[in-house]
Design a protein around this nucleic acid. Structure first.
Length: 554
RNA sequence: UGGGGAGUAGCCAAGUGGUAAGGCAACGGACUUUGACUCCGUCAUUCGUAGGUUCGAUCCCUACCUCCCCAGCCA
């Protein structure tokens, strides 16, 4: 287990249960599992579950398996298992065992035969529609299938022939014989096995019958010796069936299921279906598009595993539906990057400045701290000469009150350099500002101890002659929040401005920046080098998160 | 209207018979060569509502209200 994230998880109801089970000796060793279905990429909601399972087991010196719940070949793909493994590893977790539900298909089949032998399961010839019709409703009991009382021998024979592939998809299913009048719909003779003549990404065509989640999952947990099987709230209704399967299949181990509320976050979508739709319809640039809430998207955007883990720990684990403010996630990545990322200057929207009283053909090198809050990061030298770029936002012709930046006649400090005063605004024929003429005061050099007068503002800049061209990608929420979001309106809620691409400059010493290198661009925020877009001479920086700001022009 | 869950601040979330932790956000102020960071302060006389038990209730009891989940051969 990685030591990246220190400290124990705050109290939560599941941890209390585990602690009690350990204290009373109900379980000898804690075993949890993270059981994704390989039908999509992992997202921040999965991260909550991953952290819960791994950190919980770790805290009690237990084990956690990574188990692929690959019981539906129609939706699953090997591409996803690879991506999921990478994401879990990247988050910093090491699983005890790597498991696949498909490895247990034979045992599951035998357990199903046991059920049949005990008269607890039967082969049903009803169509999917008939089964649905006969299931009853929320308020009315269901009707028993006419196939419900077939003999054990006939059931065994039919089930074996299902496995052999004698029947077409949908022709027959294996059902548990429980109670068609149960108020819990899950207990109205649930389907245990269905026929699907489909290629499975691991077992190929070895099987044409596949177990349903409700049958497979408890068996998987029991087979692996999982003690605490943690899932989300919508499975609460399934718990009686979970226990029924473990009991009736006579499993040696008796795992217990506990349910917690899945993560919802403001300004994003978390359903795999919607995320897949965004990918399939090319609305985003793949599962790892920085705008996606996927682990791979967050990674590409520049998030760190530590930030995600701390977030997962701090939001807590409970049973009430909730929506966490995305600013909480942002808070933890700022906190993590604060001491880790060197601070440097980048101009996202350049405005040229000419220091008219600075000698032409002269360059001086100024000392700059890489991170004042982390002196170990040392210093660097940055060039300063007659022509610079500053941020367009840092000059206003008609400034409002309390505007501390540059305007005609005003003086500001250039970070790490000198005070400059704006003397003249140069415009083109259209009246657009093309450059500023300023003067500097040599006495005000950074570090000189100059105190004769003060300025209210300090702005960042880069030297025009040395600056490195760069591209910046700024992100906004992919979808707009609405009061009542309906499925239909999902695509109409797509934010057309979720990606903004800017061309500007960074300090020349960023020439050697590598993919995923992170920087705090002075007064802008944290940025991370994009692993895919950064071609040889044009680095692309993704904005991880902006700096907080109490300033606004409006 | 059957069954299963949940209601503690704008958002998360502890607590659980003894008088409401913490985080995010927000708002003041100090500091500041980042309008950042940091620091200080403010932010629930009240825990969905109404009754009841008790010396004392967010916690126990009763009734009610609101929200979420369940009628896939998905997970």
């Amino acid at each position: 287990m990685s030591e990246l994230v220190q400290g124990s998880v705050a109290s939560n109801f599941i941890k209390n249960i585990v602690a009690e089970d350990v204290r009373t000796g109900k379980v000898a060793a804690v075993v949890t599992r993270f059981p994704p279905e390989p039908n999509g990429y992992l997202h921040i909601g999965h991260a909550k579950s991953i952290c819960l399972n791994f950190e919980l087991a770790d805290e009690f010196n237990g084990k956690t398996n990574l188990r692929f719940d690959d019981t539906n070949p129609l939706k699953e793909d090997a591409e996803y298992v690879q991506a999921i493994k990478e994401d879990v590893k990247w988050l910093g977790f090491d699983w005890d065992r790597l498991c696949f539900a498909s490895d247990y298909f034979e045992e599951m089949y035998q357990r199903a035969r046991l059920l049949i032998t005990k008269g607890k399961a039967y082969v049903c010839d009803l169509s999917a529609e008939r089964i649905r019709e006969m299931r009853g409703t929320l308020t009315q009991p269901g009707q028993e299938s006419p196939y419900r009382n077939r003999s054990v021998e006939e059931n065994l024979d039919l089930f074996e022939r299902m496995r052999k592939g004698e029947f077409a998809d949908g022709a027959k299913v294996l059902r548990a014989k429980i109670d068609m009048a149960s108020p819990n719909l899950n207990l109205r003779d649930p389907v245990l096995y269905r026929i699907a003549h489909a290629e499975h990404h691991r077992t190929g065509d070895a099987w044409c019958i596949y177990p349903m989640y409700d049958f497979a999952h408890p068996l998987e947990d029991a087979i692996e010796g999982v003690t605490h099987s943690i899932c989300t709230l919508e499975f609460e209704d399934h718990r009686p069936l979970y226990d029924w399967v473990v009991r009736e299949c006579e499993m040696e181990n008796t795992p217990r299921q506990y349910e917690f509320a899945r993560l919802n976050m403001t300004n994003t979508v978390m359903s795999k279906r919607k995320l897949k739709q965004l990918v399939d319809e090319r609305i985003v640039d793949g599962w790892d598009d920085p705008r996606m809430p996927t682990i791979s998207g967050l990674r590409r955007k520049g998030y760190t595993p530590e930030a995600i883990r701390t977030f997962a720990r701090e939001i807590g684990v409970a049973k009430s539906n909730s929506t966490v403010d995305e600013r909480m996630l942002e808070h933890f990545v700022r906190e993590d990057l604060k001491l880790k990322a060197p601070r440097t200057m980048a101009i996202l929207r350049p405005l040229k400045v000419v220091i008219t009283n600075y000698p032409e053909n002269q360059t001086e090198w100024l000392e700059a701290e890489n991170n004042p809050e982390n002196p170990e990061m040392g210093n660097r030298s940055i060039p300063f000469s007659r022509e610079l770029y500053i941020e367009q936002d840092d000059f206003l012709e008609d400034p409002p009150p309390k505007y501390f930046r540059l305007f005609l006649g005003n003086e500001v400090r250039l970070k790490h350099a000198y005070f400059i005063r704006c003397e003249e605004v140069i415009k083109d024929a259209d009246g657009s500002i093309i450059e500023l003429h300023c003067t500097y005061d040599p006495k005000t050099k950074s570090g000189s101890g100059f105190t004769e007068r003060k300025v209210k503002g300090t702005i960042h800049w880069v030297d025009a002659a040395h600056a490195l061209k760069a591209e910046f990608r700024l992100f906004e929420p992919l979808v707009n929040e609405t009061e009542n979001e309906s499925e239909e309106s999902f695509l109409s809620r797509i934010n057309p401005h979720s990606l903004e691409i800017l061309q500007g400059y960074v300090e020349e010493n960023l020439r050697t920046a590598q993919p995923y290198d992170k920087f705090q661009f002075f007064r802008h925020g944290y940025f991370s080098v994009d692993p895919k877009r950064s071609e040889s001479d044009l680095a692309v920086f993704n904005r991880v998160v902006s700096l907080k700001s109490s300033f606004s022009l409006s």
